[in-house]
Design a protein around this nucleic acid. Structure first.
Lengths: 173, 173
DNA sequence: GTCTATAGGCAGATAGAC
DNA sequence: GTCTATCTGCCTATAGAC
């Protein structure tokens, strides 16, 4: 992950990875059938987490719309913060972005999240605002791990503000 | 640019570029000394525009802090919208991100913009908010050109809101 | 499970004719 | 300015010994 993130997927060779891990390229192929499976497995936990989040959200019972959206964006922020390294990699790497099981899947999931954050009858302006909110959340990919710990409440406040869901109390997850 | 954006820099070969342009690899090398110069020239206008913006902002005379920041973020939004294709490419491609004259320069410039959007005595929380605002602006990279035309006022409103610079009237640039 | 050795391909870049 | 032909190198992936 460190190599992929610092150099990009295409620019990172199996030789470099094997050297870092202390064995040879051939040994890598005993554990993974191809290079792309390395990045699939590295990103799967994050993708599964989002997939889960959306599934749970859809099967939610009759719940107030405002709190539903608030919980959704807050939970997404927690996922993004928990998988910081994955987001940093994915938002930067075009090669990963193009892969069906990685970037394409990520795009589909984020678009689904975007839809879930909208009501069924939202206009283009609201779509753009939601896109901005997600962009603000994803800006954490650029931050270093140290400032990230204290960042959560601020990110939550910004995202809720952009979405028009401000609320002063009860934001613990 | 189309090939770089859709496939990534590393994954795009000079053969593909030459084929698309209707001549051969060797002819490319008459006009550009190396592959990396293609991406340098493609991104230079955007980078120069930001560089200019920051330089002009620094040499501004005694001006109200609020309007200074408002103008700065609005002008940046205009640059981002005008160079939409460049931003889309740069935010996605790790290979470009690593190049000193492209991604590194872009990072330096965006950080300088971030500093310029802060007062000299801002805390970490304010830093994060500014980062979120820029993230929201950069989310336009994900939008398609059609919805982009109508997006400007919404982006401006979101960014000013996150920065705490809301103002109802006089937002024409 | 890890190794050495190598196959097979395509990349970026150059030489030199026209 | 564009071409054909080619060099050199590294890449992913595989074969087969241990």
């Amino acid at each position: 992950m460190a190599l992929f993130t610092s150099q990009g997927y295409d620019a990172t060779s199996l030789r470099q990875i094997a050297d870092r891990l202390g064995f040879t390229k051939a040994a890598l192929y005993y554990h993974f059938p191809a290079k792309e499976h390395l990045v699939i497995e590295l990103t799967r936990p994050w993708l599964d987490a989002i997939s889960n989040l959306i599934a749970l959200n859809q099967s939610a019972p009759g719940m107030d719309e405002g709190t539903r959206r608030r919980r959704l964006i807050e939970d997404y922020i927690d996922i993004v913060l928990a998988h910081h390294a994955v987001l940093r990699f994915l938002t930067q790497d075009a090669a990963a972005t193009k892969h069906p099981d990685v970037g394409r899947r990520a795009l589909t999931l984020v678009l689904a999240l975007q839809d879930a954050l909208l009501g069924p009858d939202a206009d283009d302006a609201e779509r753009i605002r939601v896109g901005c909110a997600i962009g603000a959340v994803h800006s954490t990919a650029m931050m270093d791990e140290s400032t990230l710990a204290a960042a959560r409440p601020i990110i939550v406040s910004v995202a809720l503000g952009v979405l028009g869901l401000e609320q002063s109390a009860s934001s613990a997850s």
